[in-house]
Amino acid sequence: MIYKRTYRATAFMLILLLTVSCMKYGPAGTEDFHPSPPGEGLFIVNEGNFMYGNASLSYYIPRTGNMQHEVFIRANGINLGDVAQSMTIYSGLGYIVVNNSGVIFVIDPDTFRLKGSITGMISPRYIHFINDHKAYVTDLYQEKITIVDPVSFRITGYVPTPGHRSTEEMAQWKNLLFVSCWSYDNKLLVIDTRTDRIVDSLVVEKEPTQLLLDSNDKIWCVASGNLYRIHPGERKIEHIFPAGDQQSRTYLALNPRGDTLYYLNRNLWRMPVNAGSLPAVPFVRLPQRPYYGLAVDPATYDIYVADALDYVQQGKIYRFDPRGVPVDTLTAGINPGFFCFK
């Protein structure tokens, strides 16, 4: 008798098992976003975690405080990819460089819809536009900068960078493009954009990252906590400011007029670009944490500081008004590291 019951129960179990095989996996739906007014809006590029493929794009409207998460996947139904590094808007299109996916997605910044993509790089980092048919793409793992056509989305050539497999950020003065060599390097390369060849190089501290051109036509660079003011015409370092501890990661931003430099390392600092020395007191005292990004709104002069928290949850963005008074705290995606104003 007991066996009969057992058989029945076993049969029941098997049927139960066979029927409970549902899964939450498959295509993601898409949404329509109504275009927001041009000239307003801030894209926050969230790196995500390396090898998780969970990078995302957040969109924030400063005037209304409206934040939209994961707009890329919601508009297009596909993932942004693995380690979204940077975004640049040029000629009405947004170019998002997704580092470990080896792709640059080109979107309409109003609808977030894809217009195309550029592939064929190994580990792209930043894109810089020379003209309507020529842009440079730096790479973490290639001894060359890739030249792409931003209209046809095709690779059109290379700038060889022998001995420097990591090229990072770019800033241009006239026909001279300054490029930082970041990973395990300490050089700034100077490239003539007419010939696509290196014409000079400068030595800075270890691991230079950002490069910015100010209103005095000086280029600012940060490497291992040192700030460098560079005279691009003479290709010489004009001044070195020891802005942080040895090797401490520092983020830079210029105000829209390009006459004030902001820098972030533990605290937020600001100084006129023609200053002879660093400020003595911070502009804004911040909780002592490693931060992840800095930007100044080109319209409102508001300041945005990114905090990745524990690096495995949605990060926070602290927004300050031009006087340094906290305005708001925003929630972004995982590891928000780059800002792009529309």
């Binding site: 524990d310 495995v312 949850q313």
Partner: peptide, 16 residues
């Protein structure tokens, strides 16, 4: 996949 257990994102949960 996030320490904050975000469920409203499309990237934070792996389905059963």
């Amino acid at each position: 996949t996030t320490s904050s257990n975000q469920t409203h994102t499309r990237l934070g949960v792996l389905g059963p």
